[in-house]
């Protein structure tokens, strides 16, 4: 069945990708034309088009320029070099993972509290929901600056922003998941006079797993965004976010785009990684067939 779905959608996806690439190249012509006419005179049409696709600081870099840049900065630079994309990616990834793990941990604990304690449910839960509507990312620069000023620098401030962002989806998903067993299943446990602990570990926790994994996917994507935004202020010099900012300062559009693609690749691999664990775990527990 799964195989069939993949086969059925691979052609449409490729078509859409191809379409995007074509539109991209077409759009690059008018967007970069101005710069080309300023730099070169008396070009034939084909030469003109060719130039728009290969400018040094184009308004819209073309896919092959970006791919070249990524390959260059990934494979032909030393990993420890400040010009290596792997180096910057690793800095961002570290902060993302640290924040994600912290946030997940905290989220699960809070969710357990909310499900088991009515006072907490009534007082904390509304705030958790309300906090989802608040653009937490806006606080990011403040957290960075404040923590820098008390001497905490590097990984931790970014990880805290990531933690903040991944924490809320986990709480909300986990509370929903822990409450997902219906009354009949809970009553069934009761007829066996199961202890609260058994109720939690044999019923509530297993039934919450599909919800947990769905939240983890949202959470890790949010973590990455948090880490990147956390690298924007205060003159951070390493990380994908810093690379984007540096690109903006120096008009290095190819650099911005390659950092962006690296971030996209990172996000996709992280989400894919969670999906992989999800499939493995749920299959093992026979929740998913």
């Amino acid at each position: 069945m799964k195989r069939l779905i993949i086969n059925n959608s691979i052609l449409p996806i490729l078509t859409i990708l191809l379409f995007i690439v074509i539109v991209w190249y077409l759009a690059a012509i008018p967007m970069n034309s101005e710069k080309v006419t300023r730099q070169f005179k008396n070009l034939s049409f084909t030469e003109h088009v060719e130039k728009t696709w290969n400018l040094k600081k184009p308004k819209l870099p073309t896919p092959h320029q970006i791919v070249n840049e990524i390959i260059n900065t990934t494979f032909y630079k030393k990993i420890s070099s400040k010009r290596s994309l792997v180096y910057h990616g690793w800095i961002t990834l570290k902060a993302t993972l640290a924040g994600f793990i912290l946030g997940t941990f905290l989220g699960i604990i809070l969710a357990l509290g909310i499900v088991h304690n009515r006072a907490m449910d009534l007082s904390v839960m509304p705030w958790v929901i309300a906090s989802q509507t608040v653009p937490i990312l806006a606080i990011a620069p403040m957290i960075i600056v404040v923590m820098n000023s008390v001497g905490v620098t590097g990984l931790l401030p970014k990880a805290i922003i990531s933690m903040y962002l991944s924490f809320f989806p986990v709480v909300v998903g986990m509370v929903k998941g822990l409450r997902s067993p219906d009354q009949m299943q809970i009553d069934q446990m009761r007829t066996w006079s199961a202890s609260p602990n058994q109720l939690l570990w044999r019923l509530r926790f297993p039934s919450s797993l599909p919800y947990l994994f769905a939240s983890l996917k949202v959470g890790i994507a949010a973590s990455l965004i948090g880490a990147i935004v956390g690298e924007l202020p205060s003159g951070a010099i390493s990380g994908l976010g810093a690379r984007m900012l540096a690109g903006t300062y120096y008009g290095q559009t190819v650099m911005i785009w390659s950092a962006l693609f690296a971030a996209a690749f990172l996000a996709a691999s992280l989400v894919f990684f969670i999906s992989f664990i999800q499939n493995y775990t749920l299959r093992k527990m026979a929740i998913l067939r």
């Binding site: 990147i228 690109g247 903006t248 971030a263």
Partner: peptide, 29 residues
């Protein structure tokens, strides 16, 4: 149906990307 099958996974994928990162590009444009 063809478009739907192509765009849905694509849209799901893009939704998970850090699109905020495109902000500097848009500011330039």
């Amino acid at each position: 149906n063809f478009l739907k099958r192509g765009l849905l996974p694509f849209g799901n994928f893009v939704s998970a990307l850090p699109i905020v990162g495109m902000a500097p590009i848009f500011v330039m444009w």
